[in-house]
């Protein structure tokens, strides 16, 4: 596992997002502070409607905050123009979605190379990188398959490969296992574990404790704010026996 350094890659300060007005005002995100260091995996957990997805959208520039700041590598990004935000999504930040969001008519490798093509890489370079990533993620033999011919777990792997194709600073994952059964969840779990060990900075929004448990830190979110932070590093397997009534 790579050591997390102290410089925050992604930083949020007093981040707010409000919808509606007057009586109908909804504070979806209400004053969130967050520092994510390079190589760190951070999980955000909470019940549905707590604002965790909105927070993720704000962090990735898919949505604009009502107040507060988002900084990427120390640079403010919440007030960037739409065009600059697009450039940021091409190069620095990528998404993994709950429902994969793969293009149904494109094969696995075509889906993966899409981000690289958007970023202006040559078709050949984009294809090579896409094949490499699929290879690394254990989908080498399936690169010419359409998403409909892949299992849920494999589809999410393709989506992750796409997210990684431009070597982003941060990968934001929104309920990456929300649409998967337990076997596929395990598959994706394994994948995030590998990413973590590889040193990829990850922010995962989830309501699945298992996914959250792969993180270095876990935030509990309630009504738009973080109510608790848990540092998960440390601990030994020695205590495990107690969990099943073994040992003393």
């Amino acid at each position: 596992m790579s050591e997390a350094t102290d410089t925050p890659v992604l930083r949020a300060r007093a981040l707010r997002k409000e919808y509606g007005k007057g009586e109908g005002l909804v504070r979806a995100v209400d004053g969130v502070d967050l520092d994510v260091s390079a190589g760190e995996t951070v999980a955000i957990m909470g019940p549905s409607g707590c604002g965790k997805s909105t927070l993720l959208h704000l962090l990735g520039g898919l949505d604009r905050p009502s107040g507060g700041e988002v900084l990427l590598n120390g640079r403010r990004v919440d007030n960037l123009s739409e065009k600059a935000l697009s450039r940021m999504r091409r190069a620095d930040i990528s998404y993994v979605f709950q429902s994969f969001h793969l293009m149904e008519e494109l094969t696995a490798v075509e889906n993966v190379e899409l981000s690289a093509l958007m970023a202006g890489h040559s078709p050949r370079a984009a294809r090579r990188r896409a094949e490499e990533l699929l290879d690394q993620l254990g989908l080498a033999g399936r690169s010419r398959f359409l998403p409909s011919a892949l299992s849920g777990g494999q589809r999410q792997r393709v989506a992750v490969a796409r997210a990684l194709s431009n070597q982003p600073l941060v990968v934001l994952a929104d309920e990456p296992t929300g649409n998967l059964d337990s076997a596929a969840t395990l598959d994706v779990l394994q994948l995030f574990n590998e990413l973590h060990e590889y040193g990829q900075t990850l922010v995962i929004v989830t309501h699945d404790a298992r996914i959250a448990a792969t993180a270095d830190r876990m935030f509990s979110m309630r009504d738009g704010t973080f109510v608790d932070e848990t540092r998960l590093t440390g601990g030994t397997t020695g205590k495990l026996g107690a969990l099943v009534g073994l040992g003393d």
């Binding site: 448990a213 848990t230 601990g235 495990l240």
Partner: peptide, 19 residues
């Protein structure tokens, strides 16, 4: 909260062991 932190750590350990 305290209890949850503890359980999450255990979960993480169990999961790592499983993986």
């Amino acid at each position: 909260d305290t209890q949850r932190r503890e359980l999450l750590r255990r979960l993480r350990d169990a999961q790592r062991a499983a993986l």
